[in-house]
Amino acid sequence: MKKKIAVYKLTFFIVLLVALVTALYLGAYDFNHSVFEIVSTYFKTKTHTADSFVLIELRIPRILMAILTGAALSITGTSLQGLFKNPLASPDLIGITSGAVLFAALTIVFGSAVMHLLPPFLSYTLLSIMAFLGALLTMWFVYKMATSNGKTHILILLLSGVAISALSGAVTGFLTYISTEEELRNLTFWSLGSLAGSNWWKVCLVFVVVSIGSFRLLKKGKTLNALMLGEKEAAHLGFDIEKTKREIIIISSLMVGCVVAFNGTIGFIGLVVPYILRFVFNSNYNILLPLSMILGAVILLIADTISRTIVIPAELPIGILTAIMGAPVFISILINYKRKLK
C-alpha cells in the first residue's frame, strides 16, 4: 500500500512537471528563445525584453498561481469533506467562496481610497484578510445553521451555501454595475474566475498562506479518519475534536479567502479532486490530503493552460472548464446518494 502511494505521488509529480514545462511554452505570445536563455539573459542584463517580460512577469507567476490555487482549493475541499463527513462539502458548494468574493468586492469598492495609498504587498494583504473574514463569517454562519447536537445536516449546509451564493452574487453584481474600479469591471472574473491578474506579489502572499495552511491540514489525516467513527470515538483515540474543527474551519477560510481574493471563484476543484482520489484510496485521509494537493495543482494548471490557449488571443474563463469537469461529478455523487436512499 505504501509503495502504491509513493508511485502515485511520483506519477502526479511527473505529470505536474510536464504540465509546468508545457505551460511555460504555450500561450498567446511565442518566445523567440528558449525559456532558460530568456531567464539567464534577464539576470545578466537586468532589463526586460519582450520575451522576458511575458515570461517572468506574466507567465511564470500565473503558472505558480495555478499550482498554488489548485492545491489550496483541493486540500481545503478534502478537509471540509472530512470534517462534515460528506463528499459534497466543498468550499464553493457550501458558500464560503461566495462569502470571500463578497468581502473582496466590497473591499475593492469601498477601500479603494485606502488601497491606492498602500504599497502593493500591503494592499493585497488587506484584500486577502478581508476575503478571509468573509470566508470565515460565512463558514461560521453555515456551520451554525447546519449543525445541531454535533450532527451536520447536509441539506441545510448546501442550502445555506445556495443562499449565501445568491446574496453574494447579487451584491457583487450590483457593485460591478456601479463601480468604475478596474478590478471590478469584469463580472466574469468573480463568477467564473481567472488567473490572468497574477503577479509576483500575489504569488508570494498566496504561497505563504497556502504553505502554512497545508502544513497544518496535512497533519489532520488521522483525525479525519477517526472522525468517521464518530466524534466520541475519535475523542477516545485521543483527538481533540473541537480544536480540530476550529483549526480546519479557520485554515480553510484563510486559504480559500486568499485564493479567491485574487482569482475569483474557481468552482468544483475542491469537489472533483477528492472525488477522483476516493475511487482509488477509499476515504483514507492520510493519503487523500497529500495526493489531493498535487492532483489539484495538476488539474488547475492544465485547466488554466487550456483556458489561455484555446481561444487565442482571447481567454476562456477558467471557471467554465472546471465546471465542465465538476458538474458530471456533482451529478454522479447525487446518483450515488439516491442509490443509498433506496
Partner: peptide, 13 residues
C-alpha cells in the same frame, strides 16, 4: 470504550 452505536458508513478498508 466500545460504544453501543457504531458508525454505519466508513469508507475504509
Amino acid at each position: 470504550k466500545f460504544s453501543q452505536h457504531q458508525s454505519a458508513e466508513i469508507n475504509l478498508k
